[in-house]
């Protein structure tokens, strides 16, 4: 599979809302207070209003992530991004992340599959691609390295 770097995205997580035990698992919503992204073809900031990660911890210990964010490029385009992801790893690593410690992202699986929608002519190439991302969970929020699938 060939890929190329689309952008790095830093996300700031606000206080999570613990929904609790639901029929599919344990649900938590993490509103995002902001962030930024930068790549060869686009850069800008993340709008806090409609951006959050809807999390579901499954019975098999895998965390499902359903991230929806609005990006604003430095030239004013709005881009809607949605990405489904999975995060899992050894219990001690996941516990360290839970305590807000920085751990080597190679020690756990944190991958997402972003899709984009925009009306801005400069960025319509985003409508036509699928992407994959690897995540690095830091105390303040994840850092995503997002690659376009060629």
């Amino acid at each position: 599979m060939n890929t190329r770097l689309l952008m790095m995205m830093h996300v700031n997580v606000a206080t999570p809302q613990n929904i609790g035990a639901v029929p599919h698992g344990t649900r938590r919503t993490a509103p995002l207070s902001g962030g930024d992204f930068e790549g060869p073809r686009l850069r800008g900031t993340l709008l806090p209003g409609g951006s959050a990660d809807w999390l579901l911890l499954r019975a098999d210990g895998v965390l499902e992530m359903d991230l929806r964010v609005t990006l604003r490029t430095d030239d004013g385009a709005l881009i809607s991004m949605k990405s489904f992801g999975l995060r899992h790893g050894p219990p001690e690593v996941m516990a360290a992340i839970g305590r807000g410690e920085t751990v080597d992202p190679a020690t756990y699986y944190f991958r997402t599959t972003p899709r984009f929608e925009t009306a801005h002519p400069a960025y319509t190439f985003l409508n036509r691609l699928v992407a994959v991302a690897s995540g690095d969970r830091r105390a303040e929020g994840p850092i995503y390295t997002i690659h376009e699938v060629l």
Partner: peptide, 12 residues
């Protein structure tokens, strides 16, 4: 095949 539950994939 439970490993399939835990992975993301891309199809060409």
């Amino acid at each position: 095949y439970a490993f399939l539950n835990r992975l993301l994939a891309v199809g060409i």
